[in-house]
Design a binder for these strands. Structure first.
Lengths: 337, 337
DNA sequence: GCTGGGCGAGAAATCGATTTCAGAAATCGA
DNA sequence: TCGATTTCTGAAATCGATTTCTCGCCCAGC
C-alpha cells in the first residue's frame, strides 16, 4: 500500500517527536546535533519521503509550476521547455506541462486545473492576446508569466522583439532584389502575429514602398493555414517575387504550396520565415529569424520564481533580440551554401 | 490569499454540517432533497472548489496520471498525447506531461516525482528497454503502462507490430526492384528498434536474400544519428539501392545526407521510413509505415484506468497494426504522385 | 404500547505533514 | 546563589477535506 512510512514512524525509530523530525528536514537550526544524526539515520533507514499533499495542505504552497504551451508540436517550444525545466529544477520546483493546442477551451481548462491544484505559478503562451482569461489564477493570487505572446492583463512577459525581427527579414528580402513581398501573417488576435506584420509594414515603408493589402494574407500559425494562404498569393496573376512566412509551421505549408506548383526558392521567388526549424531536411536551407528559445524559458522561469518569492513590483516585460540567419532560400548569390 | 472558501463556509451558509456538504458533492444518495438544494445553492453562491490536496490526503488517491514521453519533439507523440488526454479527461483525470528526452537520468527523476506525488498511474515510453527502472512506482503500487516500447518488468504495454510493419516496408522495397537494402536501425536497448531490425531481416530471408551486416548501421533515433548512419551507407563504394530508416527523425537525417550528396529518391535510390511525418513539406512524398498514434494513447489510458480501478490480472500486451503507406519516395511508377 | 430496525444528519476522528505554544533544562548576569 | 533569559524539545493545534461513529427520530411489527 505504498507510501507507508510517515513522519511518526521516523520519529518513533529515532526516539524523538514528529516535530523534531520536521525541523531537521526543514533545515531548522536549533536541533541538537545528536538528535539530528538519529533522525537522519532513521530517515535513511526507512526510506522516508514526505507526503507532498500533506505538506502543501499545511503550508498552503506547492512547489510545482505549470507550463501551458500553445502548440507542443511546434519545435519552437521544445528547447523553451528545457529552459524552464532546468531553471525550475535548480530551485527545487517541478514542472507540469500542458498543451492547449491553440484552443481557448483547453487553455481555460488547464488554467482551471492550475488554480485548483494551487500551483506555485504558471508560465503561459496564450492562445489569444485578447480572449485568454487568467481571472482564476489572479483570484488565487497565482503569479503568471507569459512567453512568446503578450496578453491584455498586466502580467510579466518574456518575448523577442518581433517587430524588429520581421523587419530585418523583409528588409533583407528587399535588399536581395525583391519588389513585391507577400506575407503570410498569423491570426489577428495573437500579439506575435500583429508585431511581425507591423515589422513587415515598417520594412516596406522604410524602403519607400507602398503596402499592398492584397499581398497580406492571414494564416493560423499552422501548416494547413500557411498552405492555403501561400496558395492564394502564388496563384495571383502578379505573383509576388518573395514571401515572408510569419512562423515556422506556415513556412512548411508555404513550401508545400510551392512544391505543388513546381516553384523553388530562391530561383522562382525568395523565401524567409520566422522561428527555428531544426528538423532540417529542407532544401534549400531556409532563411529564418531565430529566437533564443532556451533563454526565453529560463528567464521566464526566473521571473516567475521571483514573483513566487514575493516580488510585488509592477509587471516587467523582457524583450530579447531575434536574429536573422540568411541562408540559401533568399540568397541568389550564396545559392550554393 | 486564494482558495479561501472551504467546506465549512459552505456548510455555514447552507446551515448544515461539513459532512453533509461532502456527501452532496460526492453523490452520496442519502441526503434529503431540501438540504441538497441548500448545499448546491451555497456552493454556487460562494464559488466553492474543493481543495484537491486535502481531498487526496484523506482519500489517499489523486486523479492525476503521469505521461512520460521519450521525445516530445517527435511528432509521433503529439497525437498520442491527445489520445491520452481525451481518454483521461473523459474519466475525470488530468494528465501531466514530462519529456525524458531519451535520457535515463531525467526519466528516473520524473518517475520519482510521480511516486512522490502519488499519481494514480503512469504511462511511460521508456528510454531503455533494459535499463529503465520503475521500482519506485512498483513499491508505491502505482500502475504503469508502457507505450511504443516494452521493458523487462512485467507491466501492461501498448505498441504496434513493429516486426510486421518493418517487414512490409522492406518487402515493398524489394518488390519495387531493390536488391541491396540498407537499414538505419535504432539503439540496441530499445525494443522498438530491435523489432524493426528483425522485420528487416525477416523480409530479406523471405526473399531468399542474405543479410549483409555491412548494410546495417545503428543510429540513435534522432536526426544527427540518422545523418551519420546514412552517410556511412551512402559513402560505400557499393552503395545500397534502397534505404529503410527505422524512425522518422533518422529519416530526416537520411534526407539531409542524401541532399548533401545530390541524391534523390526514388531516382537514385528507394526510400522508406517508419512513423508519421505530418510536418509534410518533403519532396518527394515519403513511403512510411504509419502507426495509429491516437489510438495507442487512448488504449493505454483505458488500460491504465482499469488497473487503477483495481484490476489485478496478469500484464496485458496490446499489439496494434502498423500500415504501410506507399508514396513516391519508393515508387518508380507512381513517381508523380 | 413497546421494541427494534432503518435512515438521515451532525460530531468527531482521520489523513500526514508543519507550526505554535508551553515547559524543562541550560546558560547567563548580578 | 538565585532569578531571568535563552535554548531545545514535545504536545497539541492546524490545514481542508472524507468517513466513521453515534444519536435522534420515525415507522413497522408483535
Amino acid at each position: 500500500m505504498g507510501s507507508r512510512v510517515t513522519i511518526r514512524d521516523v520519529a518513533a525509530v529515532a526516539e524523538v517527536s514528529p516535530a523534531t523530525v520536521s525541523r531537521v528536514l526543514n533545515a531548522d537550526e536549533r536541533v541538537a546535533p545528536e538528535l539530528r544524526e538519529r533522525v537522519l539515520a532513521a530517515v535513511e533507514r526507512l526510506g522516508y519521503r514526505p507526503n507532498s499533499q500533506a505538506r502543501s495542505l499545511r503550508t498552503q504552497a506547492t512547489r510545482v509550476i505549470g507550463l501551458i504551451i500553445s502548440d507542443i508540436q511546434n519545435p519552437f517550444f521544445t528547447s523553451l521547455v528545457r529552459g524552464v525545466e532546468d531553471a525550475a529544477q535548480a530551485s527545487g520546483y517541478s514542472v507540469v506541462l500542458a498543451n492547449s493546442d491553440e484552443d481557448l477551451g483547453k487553455e481555460q481548462q488547464y488554467l482551471r486545473v492550475a488554480a485548483a491544484e494551487q500551483m506555485a505559478g504558471v508560465i503561459l503562451s496564450p492562445a489569444s492576446s485578447s480572449r485568454t482569461r487568467i481571472g482564476e489564477l489572479v483570484h488565487e493570487e497565482i503569479p503568471v508569466v507569459t512567453i512568446d505572446r503578450r496578453i491584455a492583463a498586466d502580467v510579466d512577459s518574456v518575448a523577442v522583439d518581433n517587430v524588429a525581427g520581421a523587419r530585418q527579414a523583409v528588409e533583407h528580402l528587399l535588399q536581395t532584389g525583391a519588389r513585391r513581398v507577400g506575407v503570410i501573417a498569423g491570426p489577428e488576435d495573437v500579439s506575435t502575429a500583429a508585431d511581425r506584420l507591423e515589422g513587415y509594414r515598417a520594412a516596406l515603408r522604410a524602403a519607400g514602398l507602398a503596402v499592398d493589402p492584397e499581398l497580406i494574407v492571414r494564416g493560423d500559425f499552422r501548416i494547413d493555414g500557411g498552405h492555403r494562404a501561400a496558395a492564394r498569393l502564388l496563384d495571383r496573376p502578379d505573383r509576388p517575387d518573395a514571401l515572408f512566412a510569419a512562423n515556422n509551421l506556415m513556412l512548411i505549408g508555404t513550401l508545400d504550396a510551392m512544391a505543388e506548383r513546381g516553384l523553388t526558392a530562391p530561383a522562382d521567388l525568395l523565401l524567409a520565415g520566422f522561428d527555428e526549424m531544426s528538423w532540417a531536411g529542407f532544401a534549400p536551407p531556409l532563411t529564418l529569424v531565430e529566437q533564443p528559445t532556451y533563454e526565453i524559458g529560463r528567464l521566464a522561469t526566473q521571473m516567475l520564481l521571483r514573483r513566487i518569492a514575493g516580488g510585488t513590483a509592477a509587471a516587467e516585460h523582457v524583450v530579447l533580440e531575434a536574429t536573422l540567419k540568411v541562408r540559401a532560400s533568399s540568397d541568389l548569390v550564396r545559392r550554393a551554401v
